[in-house]
């Protein structure tokens, strides 16, 4: 499922965004070897401070498995600045109806090959569908995306081939980076959906996304508790009851906090 996180709702999604920045660190520093800043295992740059919109994909277990960052091309954005080498010294495109997509990645470690819901190909397509549909609703007609050749191949093979490129591919870390043009159109969305078998609404409500994310945050069973099965079972039941009856994201987060606090306390008591 897809959730759009921007500066208007990011206060509700702090932990989701932290997971996203961790995924970006694993992909861009680790796998692609780009020269990016990673602190505390999270990759962030100045463009994250410019209130971008993040398209975030959560898998069935609530893990952040894909993301993309969107900025307007009318204001500061990466192709105008740090990726300008891709444009061979030419000024960037600038239009209210053209958005820039950067930091597009999926979790290749967690996801599988093939075409299931948990595959690289499905999540890549889901993030793209989310971004295109969000853009179309905003009256935006095209996207320029900074991608690497591997991503380019994935897109081309999944009914989502860029219709053109601007500038030329340039070395960036272990791979090259290129700027691909894609129309944000019903035809493209239909083609991507058909290829990946994505049906229905890809967007989750804020409540749905938080509930799904909470699944990935379930505290691991504390080994010291294993001898005391009854307490652990009671607690687990209590928390799942609370989680089920939580009606707002705030309530769900409060349960999460309580859960980790209690687990921590129990762990600390048992350890000595």
């Amino acid at each position: 499922m897809i959730i759009i996180i921007d500066a208007l709702n990011k206060h509700k999604f702090g932990s989701v965004l932290r997971e996203m920045h961790r995924l970006r660190a694993r992909v861009f520093e680790g796998r692609l070897g780009w020269d990016v800043k990673v602190r505390d295992g999270m990759e962030r740059d100045m463009y994250d401070d410019l209130n971008p919109a993040h398209v975030v994909s959560l898998d069935d277990g609530g893990h952040v498995v894909g993301c993309m960052r969107l900025l307007q091309t009318t204001g500061p954005h990466m192709l105008a600045d740090v990726f300008s080498s891709i444009l061979d010294g030419e000024p960037p495109l600038r239009s209210a109806q053209l958005w820039e997509a950067t930091r597009f990645c999926v979790d290749t470690k967690r996801l599988t090959t093939g075409k299931t819901r948990n595959s690289i190909s499905y999540v890549t397509s889901e993030v793209m569908v989310g971004a295109f549909e969000y853009a179309m609703k905003a009256g935006v007609r095209d996207a320029v995306a900074v991608i690497d050749p591997v991503m380019n191949r994935v897109l081309t093979r999944s009914g989502n081939a860029p219709y053109d490129y601007v500038g030329s591919a340039k070395p960036m870390g272990k791979v090259t980076a290129m700027a691909a043009l894609m129309d944000c159109s019903a035809e493209r969305v239909a083609s991507v959906r058909a290829f990946a078998g994505i049906e229905g609404d890809v967007f989750a409500t804020e409540e749905e996304a938080l509930a799904r994310f909470a699944l990935s945050q379930k505290p691991k069973p504390v080994p010291a508790l294993s001898g005391d099965g009854r307490i652990a079972r009671d607690l687990e039941e209590y928390f799942s009851q609370q989680m089920l009856s939580a009606e707002t994201p705030d309530e769900a987060q409060a349960v999460m906090r309580l859960m980790s606090a209690v687990t921590e306390q129990l762990g600390a008591v048992r350890k000595p």
């Binding site: 495109l93 600038r94 239009s95 109806q97 095209d142 053109d164 043009l181 129309d183």
Partner: peptide
């Protein structure tokens, strides 16, 4: 489409 995206950008600039 490439012609169009560049035209639109040029117009706005």
């Amino acid at each position: 489409r490439t012609v169009e995206v560049h035209l639109r950008s040029g117009r706005e600039k």
